[in-house]
Design a protein around this nucleic acid. Structure first.
Lengths: 336, 336
DNA sequence: CTGAAAGCGCTTACAG
DNA sequence: CTGAAAGCGCTTACAG
C-alpha cells in the first residue's frame, strides 16, 4: 500500500480524488509513489464508501447491431477517461417484463446512470420508474422529450426534408415511402417531415405509395414487391431505414429493374452495409457515435449532480445527407 | 436491512450464498423477507469482502460489429443467471500500447475473468501477462492453443474443406482464393485446409489465384478486379470472410459478370449481410453466439477454481455450411 | 495542511 | 444450526 511511503491513508485518498489541502510537495511525492507502484484504487471499496458504483450502462432494445456497437463505442470513449466503466444491457422489447427487468438490473448492479437508446428511450413509463429509484439517465431519441439535460435528439424530421428535397430536385414526382407502423415516435417524425416537404412542393403521397415495413430487410423486399408491381411503378423509393432499402434493391434486381437508372432508392441510417451494396446506397448518416458521446457527457455531469452543465452540452444533431450511387434523374417522366 | 427481521446478518449471508447449516424454517423465513423487501445485496460490498468483482469482460480487437455483438449476447446469457455482469473492452490492434491497455483495464476494474475474441485471443504474450496478474481467461479462436479448459475452438480448417468440396462437386476447377496476409493463425487455418482439399482432388491453387485482402469489403473489390481481369478468369472465388465476398459481388456486377451463372462466390462468417445481398451469399456459419456461451461457461467454472469442470465443457465447434444463391455449376467448362 | 476514528455492506474465521 | 468479532479498502466527518 502506498501509505507505507510516508503519509496517511487519508492523504493518499485526497491525492487520488483531487481534493484540496495537500501541499505541493506531498502531492508530487505521493503521485510518484503511485506511479512507481502502478497503484490503482480498488473500485469496489471506493464504490462502497462513496455509495456509487462508477458504472454506467447502455440500455437498448434495438436489434441493429452496428447501431448499438457504434453507440457503445461513443459511450466508452467518454467513460474511461472519467473513471467510469460501461456495462451493457440489451433487452427484448417483446418481453412482457421488459421494464421490471431493466429496473432490477439497475438496482442489483447499482448502476449510477443509464444511456437509453431508441426505441426504449421513448418510454415515459421507464423514465418515471428510473426517477423512482433515483437512477440518472440520458435519452437518445429523435423527438423533443424531457429537458435538454436529459436528452440528445437526432432531428429526423429535418433530415427527412433533405431526402425529399433531393428527390424533388432530381425530378421525381411519383415517390414510394416505406415506413414502420406508428408504434414509435421516430417513425412519425420521419413520416411527417417527408410528407410535408413533398406537399410543400405540390407532390402528394397517397396511401398506395406508403408501405408498412418493420425495419428488417425482408420487409423491405415485401414492400418493394407491392410498390413496384403497381402501374406505373414509382420512380423512387425512400425507405425509413437502410435494411429495408437494401431489401428494395434486392427486389429491384430480381425484377430486372436497374438502380439508379430505372429506380432511385434512398435509405436512412448509414448502416455500414450501405456503402457495401452495389450500387452504393444514398442515405442519411445519424452520427450515432457522436450522439452517444454527448449523451454520456451529460450523464457524467448528472452523476456529479451538475444539471446545469448537463443542460449546456449540445443536445441536438441533424443527420447528414450521404450521396452515393443509388439515386438518379428518373428516366421516364411520370405523367404530371 | 433484512436482518431487522429476526436473524443475524450472518444468517442472511448464508441464505444468499446458498451455504449449508441453515434450518429449513429459518431459510424459508429469510427468503420470504428478501422477496418481500425486494432486497438485493450490494455488489460493491460483496465484491470487497469476497475480493472478487463478479465482473467479466469481453476483450476484442475485431472490427466486425455483428461478430462482436453476437459474442457479447452469448456471454451475457451466461453471466446474468450466475450473478455476474459483463463489461466490454474493445481495443485497437494497431495501437502500440494494446497489451498494457488491456492489463491496466483489468487491474483497475478488478475484472475476475476475460473472454478473448480473435484475433487478440491468439496472442501468447497477452496470455502470459494475464497469468502474471492471475486473471482468469478463456480464448475463442480457430487453432488448438492452450488446454481445453481455456479455449473454445472453431474448426475452420475442417469448415474450409466443406467449401472446397462443394466447389469441386459443382464442377469448378479454376478457383480464386482471397485470404488475409498471414499475420493471424486463423488465416493460415483457412488457407491450408482449402489448398489441401483442392490438391487432394488434383486441383492446384497457383499463386496467381491467391489474392491478399484485409477483411474489408474494399479489399474484396480490389482482389476481385485482379482475379477477374485474368484470362480466363476463375469460375469461382472463395473469400475468407463475408465482407470481402460482398466486395467480390459488387465488382462482378460492375463488370457485368452474373452471379452465380458466370461466377460462383462463397464467403465465410455468415455475417447478417450475407442473406441480404442479392443473390444471397453462400457461406459458413461460425456459431459465434454458441462459442461465446461455451467460453463463458468455462470462464465461470475457472472463476470458481474448478478447472476440471471448465475442461469438461465442449471446446470445439465446426462451422456450418449455409447454402444460398451465389453458387452454381460453371457455365463454361474450364480446359482440363 | 494532515491524520485517527468510525463506517460503507458484505464476508471469513471462530466460538458456542 | 446460529451469532459476535474483525476485516475487505476505501471514504466522510471531525479534530488538530
Amino acid at each position: 500500500m502506498a501509505r507505507l511511503a510516508g503519509v496517511s491513508k487519508k492523504t493518499v485518498s485526497r491525492v487520488i480524488n483531487d481534493e484540496p489541502n495537500v501541499s505541493t510537495k506531498t502531492l508530487s511525492k505521493v503521485k510518484d509513489i503511485i506511479a512507481q507502484l502502478n497503484y490503482s484504487p480498488n473500485p469496489q471499496a471506493r464504490g462502497l464508501a462513496f455509495s456509487r458504483s462508477f458504472l454506467l450502462a447502455v440500455v437498448n432494445d434495438n436489434p441493429n447491431a452496428s447501431y448499438v456497437t457504434e453507440a457503445m463505442y461513443g459511450a466508452l470513449s467518454q467513460c474511461r477517461p472519467n473513471g467510469y466503466e460501461l456495462v451493457v444491457h440489451p433487452c427484448d422489447s417483446r418481453h412482457v417484463d421488459l421494464l421490471d427487468d431493466i429496473i432490477n438490473f439497475i438496482k442489483r448492479v447499482k448502476i449510477d446512470g443509464v444511456i437509453l437508446l431508441p426505441p426504449i428511450s421513448e418510454s415515459e413509463e421507464l423514465i418515471s420508474r428510473l426517477k423512482a429509484i433515483e437512477c440518472q439517465y440520458v435519452r437518445v431519441l429523435s423527438v423533443i422529450a424531457d429537458d435538454s439535460a436529459h436528452r440528445v435528439r437526432s432531428n429526423d424530421r429535418e433530415a427527412v426534408r433533405h431526402v425529399a428535397n433531393h428527390l424533388i430536385a432530381l425530378g421525381h414526382r411519383d415517390i414510394g415511402f416505406i415506413q414502420r407502423p406508428k408504434n414509435s415516435q421516430s417513425t412519425t417524425e420521419r413520416h411527417v417531415g417527408f410528407r410535408e416537404t413533398l406537399e410543400d412542393n405540390g407532390i402528394s403521397l397517397p396511401q398506395n405509395r406508403i408501405a408498412m415495413g418493420d425495419y428488417t430487410s425482408q420487409s423491405g423486399v415485401e414492400c418493394a414487391e407491392w410498390l413496384l408491381n403497381s402501374t406505373p411503378p414509382p420512380t423512387a423509393i425512400f425507405a425509413s431505414n437502410d435494411q429495408m432499402a437494401i431489401g428494395v434493391m434486392a427486389t429491384a434486381k430480381k425484377m430486372d429493374i436497374r438502380i439508379p437508372n430505372d429506380l432511385t432508392v434512398i435509405g436512412f441510417d448509414d448502416n455500414p452495409l450501405a456503402s457495401m451494396v452495389w450500387p452504393a446506397l444514398t442515405t442519411m448518416n445519424l452520427h450515432t457515435k457522436k450522439m452517444a458521446e454527448l449523451a454520456t457527457q451529460k450523464l457524467l455531469a448528472l452523476c456529479d449532480g451538475d444539471v446545469d452543465r448537463a443542460a449546456d452540452i449540445q443536445s441536438e444533431l441533424v443527420p447528414n445527407f450521404i450521396q452515393r450511387q443509388s439515386t438518379a434523374t428518373p428516366k421516364i417522366q411520370p405523367l404530371q
